[in-house]
Simulated scan of single mutants.
Amino acid sequence: MRLRSLTTAAVLAAGLVAGSQPAHAAGPAVKITKIYYDSPGSPDNGANKSLNGEYVQLKNTGRTSVNLKDWTVRDETKRPDHVYTFGRLTLKPGRTITLRTGRGKDTGTTLYWGRSGGGTFAYIWNQTRDTAYLRNAAGKLVDSCSYNSSARDYKIC
């Protein structure tokens, strides 16, 4: 019995030395970290300031840069205009990118969905319940974050 325990320990140690990690330790390097879904002024006016008050944040929690080209963020509706597709963007380790709903000039830390006017229909995130989905360029689900509350204006994922 003791020999079996020592053999198992030696095999496990060898795997750790070789740099392997348990399957459960591997998770998405890019995660949805926050959704601000009930911006000031919404849902009535659809003004750009209010639209940009709602956003989703993504963070690269890994140790290597991630190319986000052709990755998507969407809500739980099946509407094609509720999908944001990333252009050329590399998210460095530890960095966060904010994707705002309205219009604006993209920077290294903030991107704009480009939605405008139209009152309620211009907003992406429902005020009390929704889900954000992050998919890679192959369409594989990388992360998601849901909220179901009118008690706050945001969800820390």
Rank of each mutant, 00 (worst) to 15 (best):
R74I: 03
D143V: 09
T131A: 02
D75G: 05
T131S: 05
T109M: 01
G139P: 09
Y37N: 03
R100H: 10
P40Y: 07
M1L: 12
Y154K: 14
Y147T: 05
R79Q: 14
V66T: 06
A47N: 06
S116I: 02
I124D: 06
D38L: 11
P80C: 02
A138N: 15
T85P: 04
K69I: 05
R100D: 00
L99P: 02
F86K: 06
G41H: 04
A138S: 15
G87N: 13
G102Q: 00
D70C: 05
A138H: 15
T120E: 14
R152M: 07
N45I: 10
S42D: 03
T72Q: 13
R79W: 10
Y147P: 02
F86T: 05
R2N: 13
V73N: 01
D130W: 07
R115A: 11
S65D: 14
T101A: 05
T107V: 04
L12A: 12
D143T: 09
L91D: 10
G15S: 13
S42M: 09
N52D: 10
T109R: 15
D81Y: 11
T77K: 12
G104V: 03
A137R: 15
L6H: 14
G139S: 11
G119Q: 09
L89K: 15
Y37T: 04
K155G: 04
N48S: 00
S50M: 02
Y84D: 02
H24N: 10
A151K: 15
L141N: 08
V83E: 09
N67L: 10
D143M: 08
P40A: 11
D75K: 08
G53K: 08
G53Y: 12
G87Y: 08
A47Y: 12
T101L: 03
I97E: 00
G94K: 11
T109Y: 12
W125E: 02
L6A: 14
I124A: 01
R79T: 03
P28M: 07
D153E: 12
R115W: 03
Q127C: 05
T61I: 14
D70H: 13
T7F: 14
Y55I: 01
V17A: 15
M1H: 12
S39M: 04
S149P: 03
T131G: 02
N45W: 06
L16H: 10
D153G: 09
N48I: 00
W71D: 09
D143Q: 08
T131R: 09
G27H: 13
R2H: 07
L91Q: 08
A122F: 06
L134T: 10
N48F: 01
T131E: 04
G87M: 05
G104A: 06
R74P: 00
V11G: 00
A151C: 04
R74V: 00
D75H: 05
G102H: 00
P80Y: 14
N126H: 11
L68C: 05
P93C: 11
A29F: 00
T96Y: 07
T8E: 12
Y133S: 06
S146F: 11
S65N: 11
S50H: 06
V56Y: 07
T8S: 12
R79C: 02
E54V: 06
N67M: 06
R79N: 13
G46E: 01
R4T: 10
R100S: 05
H82L: 00
D44A: 06
S150V: 11
G108I: 03
